[in-house]
């Protein structure tokens, strides 16, 4: 058995490197399914859209619906609220965005109801800007759902949505 003692050292090193590399590949390949299994599964991904009939929402009211486990605010804005949102100079905004860029029809504002600070749900028609006010840490949003005051870094997120008809929207 003891005949390979004079084996060429380069060939021996190659063998060690190849074995080590193959073992590393094996560990990496095994790790992936264990990581990937925590991502949303196929049934969760399939449930990505929600439809809402908006004909029954009176002017000035906010309706909250659940989409992907989160609240979505659908706000039927009054003329005054629209005007307030449109008249704000961009320079006053921590996260500058025009109101037009955030709505498809001016009367209807659709935003994800999750404070961009740490995930609480802001209260509607409250706070200094009459938009939303987050009770957790005092972030205040305006009638376009934009951050105006407080620790939140960004405006309320606008989800993907579309008007299927004049009275029906599909979120997601």
């Amino acid at each position: 058995m003891a005949t390979t003692s004079t084996a060429d050292p380069t060939r021996r090193d190659m063998l060690y490197i190849a074995t080590g590399a193959a073992s590393a590949v094996a560990i990496g390949a095994v790790a992936w399914p264990f990581i990937s299994q925590m991502n949303p599964d196929a049934s969760t991904l399939a449930l990505s859209s929600t439809e809402l009939d908006i004909s029954a929402i009176p002017e000035g009211q906010i309706v909250t619906i659940k989409w992907r486990g989160k609240p979505v605010f659908v706000r039927h804005r009054t003329k005054k609220e629209i005007k307030e949102a449109e008249d704000v100079p961009l320079a006053q905004l921590p996260d500058p965005q025009t109101d037009q860029a955030r709505v498809k029809k001016p009367e209807w504002l659709v935003v994800v109801g999750v404070c961009t600070h740490l995930g609480c749900i802001p209260l509607g028609h409250q706070g200094p800007f009459d938009g939303w006010f987050c009770p957790c840490h005092g972030s205040a949003y305006d009638t376009s759902g934009r951050i105006r005051q407080g620790p939140a870094p960004r405006n309320l997120e606008v989800p993907d949505y579309a008007f299927l008809t004049d009275t029906k929207i599909k979120i997601g």
């Binding site: 058995m1 193959a22 073992s23 094996a26």
Partner: peptide, 18 residues
């Protein structure tokens, strides 16, 4: 892959025990 890895480990083991 496992057949290759087993072969490599076996060869390495033989080298070490030589």
């Amino acid at each position: 892959f496992m057949a290759i890895l087993t072969g490599l480990l076996y060869a390495t083991k033989k080298r070490v025990w030589a």
